[in-house]
Design a protein around this nucleic acid. Structure first.
Lengths: 173, 173
DNA sequence: AGCTCTATTATCATATATGATAATAATATG
DNA sequence: CATATTATTATCATATATGATAATAGAGCT
């Protein structure tokens, strides 16, 4: 790794490595010496447009990318297995594999209301944490007790609870 | 590698991977949905400040760096060898190893004026292309013929020739 | 159809990065 | 000492990124 880790340090290192003065680099990059001096001395808000021009003048490739901190889901369950496990909760209308994608909210509501803890875990493993929480936040057809439980959990996850209870559920007064 | 290669594509991919809407991501990142929509649709001038806020909200590490295109000098000559080779050009004042660092212009002028092609190559290999060209551009004590030659060469390299011939050289009229 | 959420785009005001310039200081060079 | 180059900083004008808002359109759901 280079000695300098911040953009400022990297810039200064590379410029001196090429033996360029601020004005000379500014001329080649089509920017100004004032900007470059700011860049090398504590500046933190850069414009990628300027960074790109500098890359060309420094004979460098500019690399900008986000690297996910959390590793990929190691074991996403098989869809058929999910359907098989949850099937018993859908006594009125048989659950199909397609439903997981087309009616996630419906599936989620049923699992939250009638499922055991392992059923919920399986659903979350299938959806992924983010989509799972988002779907939970949308679930409206829940009993007050279940709704209260997940509302509390969502708040602990820093999620706004968007549930607006429908009047069509069996639990509405 | 990710499917998307531009910043726009990477952003959209990661956001959808997390199942976030523009507004939700904007809220978490402390920016606006309008900005994010622009970011995902052809925007090219990003501010690193915003990119950093997005990195946090996307649970990513933001990577920004310049990668030199030209590989490191593979065979930088040994300093003693350079001195030994060039020694014969310095009949009046013996060349020392230290002179390469302390009086580069002096060394350079002598080599350009009296050296053979291989001597020049050796000097360039020692200095590196950039420092070599810069030193050449500063050389002032050259005969008109030599100066003219290097001036032409510097122009071909896209370099401004900064030579301002001194009145103290033997060649001045 | 009606409703909600989402995405996109336009417009405008504001914040801020950049360019131009000048002043200053430090450093080399003759 | 004189001169030139360089780096840093301040100031100001300008360019542009961003935020807020609204309008539009589309998708999904009841």
């Amino acid at each position: 790794m280079n000695p300098g880790h911040s953009i400022s340090e990297r810039l200064k290192d590379r410029r001196q490595e090429l033996g360029l003065s601020l004005s000379e680099l500014a001329r080649r990059a089509g920017t100004s010496a004032a900007t470059l001096s700011r860049y090398e001395n504590g500046w933190t808000r850069f414009e990628t447009y300027t960074l790109r021009k500098l890359a060309a003048a420094l004979d460098c490739e500019l690399l900008i990318e986000w690297r996910p901190r959390t590793p990929r889901r190691s074991a996403k369950p098989v869809r058929a297995a999910v359907v098989q496990r949850l099937a018993r909760l859908f006594w009125d209308h048989p659950l199909t594999a397609k439903d997981l994608a087309t009616h996630p909210t419906w599936v989620c509501e049923r699992v939250l209301e009638y499922g055991a803890l392992d059923d919920v875990r399986e659903l979350q493993a299938w959806f992924g944490k983010e989509e799972f929480l988002r779907t939970v936040a949308q679930a409206a057809r829940l009993s007050p007790r279940t709704a209260g439980f997940w509302k509390t959990l969502l708040e602990r996850e820093g999620r706004a609870c968007t549930k607006k209870f429908s009047r069509n559920t069996a639990w509405n007064y």
